[in-house]
């Protein structure tokens, strides 16, 4: 924990992160609109696409993880966020089930898939991705098949209202039960 500036107890440290997904879950998160300002009174958002920070911080209380684990970067981040967070939340169907990201598992080996997408695609001039792109794992996997996950928030994307209910219950703002549903 960073040292508190005030005598009041520090706010819970919330992170969001985006692995192999389409960012739709984060869009839904942004759809919380003005409640995000309310959220700021209950939690400190310490990491995520909305925060200008390069590395996943230590001592995170809860992290919303969007996307499946599909490449070596995702895998490293998954381990890192697990090690540095108290509560890991699979955020959206890609993190929970693999979803659309895992559709590539049906095509075959990653090499086969990349070739099909880049080399065989009529609009791509046969260009293959260069070495700066992280290697794909053999399969795209749900987060909990890679590291232990504490909570699951399915949906593609989870509607903003459901995200709010989940966060409210997690942060102790409102404990009323929330529905869960894939898709």
């Amino acid at each position: 924990m960073t040292s508190p500036k005030h005598a009041a107890p520090p706010l819970p440290r919330l992170a969001t992160i985006w692995l192999g997904g389409c960012s739709g879950c984060h869009m839904s998160f942004v759809d919380l609109d003005e409640w995000l300002i309310e959220l700021r009174r209950h939690a400190q958002i310490v990491y995520g696409p909305l925060v200008d920070r390069k590395e996943f911080p230590e001592d995170v209380d809860a992290v919303l993880v969007e996307g499946a684990v599909t490449n070596t970067d995702n895998l490293e981040l998954a381990h890192q966020l697990r090690a540095r967070s108290k509560v890991v939340i699979s955020f959206g169907d890609c993190a929970v089930t693999g979803n659309v990201t895992a559709l590539r598992n049906l095509v075959g080996e990653p090499g086969e898939m990349v070739y099909r997408v880049y080399a065989e695609h009529p609009d791509r001039d046969g260009q293959m991705p260069s070495e700066v792109i992280p290697d794909l794992l053999p399969q795209a996997l749900p987060l909990h098949h890679v590291v232990p996950v504490d909570l699951f928030l399915p949906g593609c994307p989870p509607p903003a209202a459901r995200i709010r209910e989940a966060l409210e219950s997690l942060l102790g703002i409102d404990d009323s039960p929330h529905g869960i549903r894939f898709g």
């Binding site: 001592d59 381990h79 697990r82 090690a83 540095r84 967070s85 108290k86 509560v87 890991v88 590291v147 232990p148 504490d150």
Partner: peptide
């Protein structure tokens, strides 16, 4: 052993 978080 699995990778576990601070709480685990």
């Amino acid at each position: 052993d699995e990778p576990v978080g601070v709480a685990h």
